[in-house]
Design a protein around this nucleic acid. Sequence first.
DNA 1: CGGAGCCGATGACAGATGTCATGGGTTCGC
DNA 2: GCGAACCCATGACATCTGTCATCGGCTCCG
Lengths: 201, 201
Amino acid sequence: MTIRLVLADDEDLIRGALAALLGLEDDLVVVGEAASAAEAVAVACAERPDLAVLDLEMPPGDGLGAAAEIHARLGVPVVLVTRHARPGVLRRALAAGVRGFVPKTTPAARLAAIIREVHGGRRYVDPDIAAAALTERPCPLTPRELDVVRAAARGAPVAEIAAAVHLAPGTVRNYLSAAMAKLGAPNRQAAARTAWEQGWI
Amino acid sequence: MTIRLVLADDEDLIRGALAALLGLEDDLVVVGEAASAAEAVAVACAERPDLAVLDLEMPPGDGLGAAAEIHARLGVPVVLVTRHARPGVLRRALAAGVRGFVPKTTPAARLAAIIREVHGGRRYVDPDIAAAALTERPCPLTPRELDVVRAAARGAPVAEIAAAVHLAPGTVRNYLSAAMAKLGAPNRQAAARTAWEQGWI
DNA sequence: CGGAGCCGATGACAGATGTCATGGGTTCGC
DNA sequence: GCGAACCCATGACATCTGTCATCGGCTCCG
């Protein structure tokens, strides 16, 4: 009884290495590979695997949408692999139906076991991130504040942010000010950094 | 005739996957693994491998120092693997004696061949990065300007930067202004981003 | 209904930031 | 010796940013 896998990661070297790692297991076989979120969905539809292993960071866009789509349309369980394991992202991943959440700090030897567990109907979530997600304060920012902070993340001036979010410059500064106060950040860069680290943006 | 390798990457999953990938080759054997730059040097000294494969991004510090040390002290050729292949970093890597420079966008199947080439005394440099490095403008920033831009990269206020670099606040602003003018950046965040993307900081 | 919270905006103000001119110090190469 | 380039600093100025008070409109809940 082999488990048929689809594997997606935008970095060829990593994807190939993971394929080699999983190929060492007698009961795992990689039947399809993809280098982007869109391609991952297409390959999954074509191959109808028993399980999909997706990297979360696959520009453009993230693997979360692909994970949700693969789970919703095909009923295929998804294991997400991520470099930056942020609490908020775990929350959204679980909401999207993801069955496994594995940071890249996980020992390589455990990945196959995790895949078997998820294939067997169980879930796997990295204990550290789970703890962080359970103890975290919920995001204190309003949707609009999140928009503005997101737009401010690249260090753009207020006028640019205002244009991007279709708001008056003064309103943007108000939202930024509110977000900085809520996050205890001295400036918008720090606020954006904090929000990102928590997985809120 | 097998090639004995030491492999270093801070992410366990990636390191293990790369080990699996390389282990598929009959003539390659991974004799030591490390999860940090310092550990990489120690393991290399203990194992005296034929070649070392190091990830460039290994906080704290980067793999460049470890690569230079392994090359200088042991005469072991080093292949650097990196996620963000920036022209300036390639320049510094070659100056440090690195023999192979491989971005993670390289197809996995080629890594073994690259290792054999480097072990055979040749060099390997990713063609795209090499082209970028050859056509790039040289860094226009003075050493002091680089210091200040580096300190400004995290979005710290001027006073903090001044304290970190032991300069008067006004001087910091002058350096930042000069750097922004040279890089064509509208503010210091953009300047820091540009400098980073070019591999100058 | 009334309050609370979010949304969008304005105006005023202090402080931070970016620009410019200018100065004196050093080192280096011609 | 002289100019060029870098280093460090100051002062003045315009702009940007962050804070605060205040406004009206909206929705949702008790």
